[in-house]
Amino acid sequence: MRTIFAEYNPQHNSIDVYTSAGYMFRIDCWEAEKNLKTTPVSDCALNALALNQPLEYARLYLDENLQMWVNAEDSLEL
């Protein structure tokens, strides 16, 4: 399945991913983030990721790497 694009949907607080096969699937950001261990800095970075790079957010979520990404963001904190 080839992805066409993804966008943040503020009405549903979700990432909507559209594919070339005509499918759309939705990732609920609240559900994706509810068990993550975040700091205020990484929480802000996660929100920015969803808004500015929704396809990357979807990839990290589907690969189960969101916590690893959050941990990397926190390690950059001064």
Rank of each mutant, 00 (worst) to 15 (best):
N71S: 06
W69F: 10
Y23Q: 14
G22V: 11
V70I: 14
A32L: 09
C29S: 06
L66D: 04
N47V: 03
W30V: 11
E56C: 00
D16T: 15
R59G: 01
Y23T: 12
Y18I: 11
T19L: 15
Y61Q: 03
N13L: 07
T19M: 10
Y61V: 02
Y18N: 07
V17W: 05
T3C: 07
E31M: 11
L76P: 03
M24H: 14
L76I: 02
K34C: 10
F5H: 13
S14G: 11
L55D: 03
T38Y: 08
R59K: 12
L78D: 07
L60P: 05
E31N: 10
R26N: 08
I15W: 03
E7D: 08
N52C: 06
S14M: 11
S42P: 13
E73Y: 00
E33S: 10
C29A: 09
V41R: 03
Q67V: 03
E56S: 04
R2C: 01
N13C: 06
E73L: 00
A50Y: 08
E56K: 07
E33I: 01
T39Y: 08
E73W: 04
V41D: 05
D63R: 04
C29V: 15
P10M: 04
N35P: 02
L51A: 05
L60C: 00
Q11L: 15
E7R: 13
L51K: 14
A45V: 04
I15R: 01
D43T: 13
Q11G: 02
C29G: 03
I15P: 04
I27K: 01
A58C: 06
L55S: 05
D43S: 14
Y61E: 01
L46G: 09
N52Y: 06
E56N: 04
Q11M: 12
E33A: 12
W30I: 09
A6F: 09
A72T: 05
Q53D: 13
T19R: 15
N35Q: 13
A32V: 05
L49R: 06
L55I: 01
E7Y: 13
A72M: 05
E64L: 01
